[in-house]
């Protein structure tokens, strides 16, 4: 686990004071409360604004994602957490009207600099989507897709090994090793999602973004995925968007609470769910809205 990264000189985390907010109105909300900056940051986001045409979806978000941590992003639907996640590997580029401002860096490298190749970025920052989306190919081909396009395997044996390893890491190997060449779309929903995870880790990304990966799955499949996330967190940095607070509580180290496009609070998960700093967070986790 020796990552050759040029650790950015960290500015001392800004002291933020909890401001009493009596209403749920956030338009006057300026700063995020809690520990939104980390010392061993893998990714750093500063003053990020995202617009769809004229509509602003993300307002001035600044947060760090630390190395090998699992950070959960929660919030009511439409709060912009998915949009924010998608700007971390520039998937928002595929939406014509979407515009990202501010600074997003990984290992100190600006992700939105014109010099950066988005292909390389996405190989380093993998993504798992809300609905399992295996390609209409065989299980093997699904996992081999990334290594093939990036030219990671030098031989067939290499490729076989990568596929097996990835499927093993995704906890799917035992279930599918007999039918690697059957269509990936024939698997159950939970298996499909784990296949998508296997597909993502086959290129050994540094960060994995997960956009509500369990929302389309039943509880048993969800439990398996959550287990898997925990295992993966030993090797990967993971950012997960979820609308299930229990899930955030179970899998994440830190939790970020989004509200109407603003990042309200970031704190260690335990703290967020036991004694949230901000009133809005508290209102959300106690079920006053969401």
């Amino acid at each position: 686990m020796t990552q050759a990264i040029t650790a950015e000189k960290k500015k001392p985390a800004k002291k933020t004071t909890a401001k009493a907010v009596n209403s749920l109105d956030v338009s006057d909300h300026k700063a995020t409360v809690g520990k939104n900056f980390a010392d061993n940051a893998k990714m750093t986001m500063r003053n990020v604004n995202v617009f769809y045409d004229d509509k602003q979806a993300i307002h001035d978000v600044s947060v760090d994602i630390a190395k090998n941590e699992v950070i959960a992003m929660i919030g009511p639907s439409g709060c912009g957490k998915s949009t924010f996640l998608r700007s971390l590997n520039r998937m928002n580029d595929t939406v014509d009207i979407c515009r990202v401002e501010g600074q997003i860096c990984m290992d100190g490298e600006d992700l939105y600099s014109p010099k950066l190749d988005v292909v390389e970025l996405r190989a380093r920052v993998g993504m798992v989507f809300q609905k399992p989306n295996p390609f209409p190919k065989s299980i093997y081909e699904n996992v081999a897709y990334g290594p093939k396009i990036h030219g990671l395997a030098d031989s067939r044996v290499d490729l076989d090994e990568i596929v097996e390893n990835s499927l093993r890491k995704a906890g799917l190997w035992e279930e599918v090793k007999e039918r690697l060449h059957q269509a990936g779309t024939g698997l159950s929903g939970g298996q499909q999602q784990r296949l998508c995870i296997a597909r993502a880790i086959a290129v050994s990304p540094e960060v994995i973004l997960m956009d509500e990966p369990c929302s389309a799955l039943d509880p048993i499949a969800t439990a398996k995925i959550e287990e898997l996330i925990e295992e993966l967190s030993q090797n990967f940095t993971i950012a997960i968007v979820t609308h299930s607070m229990q899930q955030a509580a179970r899998v994440s180290h830190r939790t970020a609470y989004f509200h109407l496009g603003r990042l309200i609070e970031v704190n260690p998960t335990e703290q967020v769910f036991t004694m949230p700093e901000h009133q809005l967070t508290e209102a959300y986790i106690t079920g006053r809205f969401g």
């Binding site: 990552q3 190989a123 396009i149 990671l152």
Partner: peptide, 20 residues
Amino acid sequence: MTEALNNLGKIKKSLSRRNR
């Protein structure tokens, strides 16, 4: 994470061909 590093090199190398 040598594997990732190793991969990164390969990806970087393939970039110009793929972009062409």
